[in-house]
Write a protein that binds this DNA or RNA. Structure first.
Length: 214
DNA sequence: CGGCTGATCGTG
DNA sequence: ACGATCAGCCGA
């Protein structure tokens, strides 16, 4: 009985990531978030997903970043907040993108969460349900299942992340937060160019996308 | 698997 | 006007 209790207390889903985890630069945070678990309450239950791909957006000096040149607007405000703050914005008029602010207040760096996999079977059921609800009419369930959360927009649909979840402190929240997950060794991390920022000139070539090797 | 394209709307 | 995208369609 005592043993059971100790194992429960040590379960990955119970080990929350604290402030010190997020108050590092955006490149360090993007690497460290691989293998961690993002948790979000949805109308159908709690969704837990292991993060498998991230991108760094390095703030005022990064031509690919929303905060390039210190651009501070109502939209980009959460990027200026304390590390661990969510930054959710609408892209192409129809999809949400989920980011986590890095580092200290007023250093507007963030990590885009691009890809994730369900942590357990309940999460998988909920993610599939949420994705099927929002799918286009002709799309097959097999196709949705295969591409459950393999892009920033799909990930937000699968975890019910909308702009209602913008500017939340994920260190303090009880409905939107992070926990430990699986261990990822540095040599398991693949680097690549960031996606969809052709306008960013030389910054488009920086290897600031991180994926777990398969 | 890779490239091309329309859909759709808040932001500045 | 313009996207830190997605899914369908085409060709290989």
């Amino acid at each position: 009985m005592k043993m059971e209790k100790m194992q429960m207390a040590d379960k990955a889903e119970n080990r929350r990531l604290g402030r010190e985890f997020f108050t590092v630069d955006g490149l360090t945070l993007a690497r460290n978030l691989l293998g961690k678990v993002m948790v979000h309450e949805t109308p159908y239950g709690t969704v837990r997903a292991i993060i498998t791909e991230t991108e760094s957006y390095m703030g005022i000096e990064d031509k690919g970043s929303h905060t390039y040149g210190g651009r501070r607007t109502e939209r980009t405000e959460p990027m200026f907040h304390i590390g661990g703050t969510s930054y959710v914005y609408l892209i192409y008029g129809m999809y949400s993108c989920m980011n986590v602010a890095a580092d200290v207040v007023d250093n507007p760096q963030a990590v885009l969460i691009r890809m994730a996999e369900p942590f357990d079977e309940e999460s998988e059921r909920i993610m599939l349900r949420l994705r099927m609800e929002k799918k286009r009419a002709r799309q097959q369930e097999s196709s949705v299942r295969k591409h459950l959360a393999d892009g920033p927009g799909k990930l937000c649909i699968a975890m019910n992340i909308t702009r209602a979840d913008n500017d939340i402190d994920m260190v303090e929240s009880d409905t939107f937060y992070w926990t430990e997950g699986i261990e990822v060794m540095p040599e398991e991390i693949l680097e690549g160019k960031r996606i969809g920022i052709d306008y960013a000139e030389e910054a488009a070539d920086y290897l600031w996308r991180f994926t777990i090797k398969r």
